[in-house]
Lab assay of single mutants.
Amino acid sequence: AEEIWQQSVIGDYLARFKNDRVKALKAMEMTWNNMEKKEKLMWIKKAAED
């Protein structure tokens, strides 16, 4: 689920960090860890469908 979420937001994060992939990935990891369980559930369901 986290991978699907990352694939959907990586472009936004890379743009925000001027294509600094290391910073973008760290920010994504922090965002994922801070997400509410119900927000993650949507992505977990999406992962299950694929």
Rank of each mutant, 00 (worst) to 15 (best):
K46N: 05
A27V: 07
D20Y: 02
W43H: 03
D50R: 15
R21W: 14
Q7D: 09
M28K: 00
K40T: 02
K26I: 10
N33S: 11
D12A: 08
V9Y: 03
K26M: 12
K38N: 14
K23F: 04
K23W: 02
R21D: 05
V22K: 09
A1T: 03
L41G: 06
S8I: 08
L41A: 12
M30F: 13
E39H: 05
Y13V: 03
R21M: 13
M30Y: 11
L14K: 02
E39W: 04
D20F: 02
K18I: 05
K38D: 15
W5P: 00
M28L: 06
D20R: 01
A47M: 05
N33L: 11
A1R: 02
T31V: 12
D12S: 10
I10W: 09
A48T: 11
R21T: 11
W43I: 03
S8D: 09
A27P: 00
E49I: 09
K38E: 15
D50M: 15
M30K: 10
S8Y: 13
N34M: 09
Q6W: 06
D20A: 02
D20T: 01
K38W: 14
K26V: 09
A15D: 11
E39F: 04
F17S: 04
Y13G: 00
E2V: 11
E39D: 11
K23G: 09
D50Q: 15
K18V: 07
A27W: 07
M28H: 01
A24P: 00
A15Q: 11
Y13A: 01
L41D: 15
R16C: 11
K38P: 08
M42G: 11
D50A: 15
W32N: 00
N19W: 08
A15N: 08
S8E: 07
K26R: 13
V22E: 14
K38F: 11
M28I: 04
A24R: 01
K37N: 12
A27Y: 06
K18A: 12
K45Q: 13
M35A: 01
K37V: 15
K37F: 15
E2W: 14
D50P: 05
E3G: 09
N19F: 09
L14I: 05
K23I: 08
K37G: 13
K46S: 06
A15H: 10
A24E: 01
W43A: 04
S8P: 00
N33W: 06
E3K: 14
N19T: 03
V9P: 01
K46E: 09
A1P: 08
K18P: 08
V22I: 14
M35Q: 01
K46C: 11
S8T: 10
E49P: 05
R16N: 06
M35H: 00
E2T: 05
W32Q: 00
K45G: 09
L41M: 10
Y13W: 04
N19Q: 11
K26Q: 14
F17D: 02
W43V: 03
A15Y: 09
E29N: 08
L25H: 09
I44P: 03
V22Y: 09
G11A: 13
Y13N: 01
I44C: 10
A24G: 01
M35Y: 02
V9I: 04
E36I: 04
I44R: 04
K37W: 15
N33T: 09
A48R: 11
K46L: 13
N19D: 12
E29P: 00
R21A: 12
R16K: 11
L25I: 10
E36V: 04
G11D: 14
M35E: 00
A1C: 05
E36L: 04
L14H: 02
W43N: 02
D12F: 08
K38C: 14
E2R: 11
E3A: 14
Q6L: 07
Y13K: 00
E36Y: 02
K45M: 10
V22C: 13
N34W: 04
N19S: 06
I10V: 05
E36T: 14
K23P: 03
E49A: 11
I44N: 05
V9K: 05
N34D: 09
I10Q: 06
K18D: 15
M28S: 01
A27N: 06
A15S: 11
L14M: 09
E29H: 08
A24T: 04
N19C: 12
L14E: 02
K23N: 08
K37E: 15
G11S: 11
L25N: 07
F17E: 04
N19M: 12
S8Q: 09
K38A: 13
A47C: 04
K26F: 10
K45I: 13
M42E: 15
E49M: 12
L41R: 04
W5V: 00
K26P: 02
I44F: 10
N33Y: 07
M28F: 01
A1Q: 03
K37C: 15
T31D: 15
R16Q: 10
W32I: 00
Y13T: 02
K46A: 10
D20K: 02
E29G: 06
K45A: 14
K45F: 06
F17A: 06
A15L: 13
E36H: 06
N19H: 08
M28Y: 01
G11N: 12
D50F: 12
M42T: 09
K40S: 01
D12R: 05
D12Q: 10
I4V: 10
N33I: 10
K18S: 13
W32M: 00
K26A: 13
D12H: 08
A24D: 00
A24C: 03
I10Y: 10
K40P: 00
I4H: 08
L14A: 01
K18H: 13
E49F: 09
K38Y: 13
V9W: 03
K40C: 03
S8F: 11
W43K: 03
V22H: 08
F17G: 01
W32C: 01
R16T: 06
A24Y: 01
A47R: 02
A1N: 03
R21N: 08
A27D: 05
G11T: 13
E36G: 13
D20I: 03
R16D: 06
K46G: 04
Q6F: 09
M35R: 00
T31F: 14
A27R: 02
D20N: 07
E39Q: 05
W32V: 00
D12C: 11
V9G: 01
D20S: 04
K45S: 13
A27L: 05
M28W: 00
K18T: 07
Q7H: 09
E29W: 07
E2Q: 13
A1F: 04
W32A: 00
A47V: 06
E2N: 10
I10G: 02
A15K: 12
T31R: 07
L25M: 12
K18F: 12
E49T: 12
N33M: 12
F17N: 06
I10T: 03
N19L: 06
D12Y: 08
W43Q: 03
L41V: 06
D20H: 04
A47Y: 10
N19I: 02
K26C: 08
M35F: 03
W32G: 00
D50E: 14
I10P: 00
A15T: 12
R16Y: 08
K40V: 03
A1K: 02
V9H: 05
S8C: 12
E36R: 05
I4T: 07
Q6N: 07
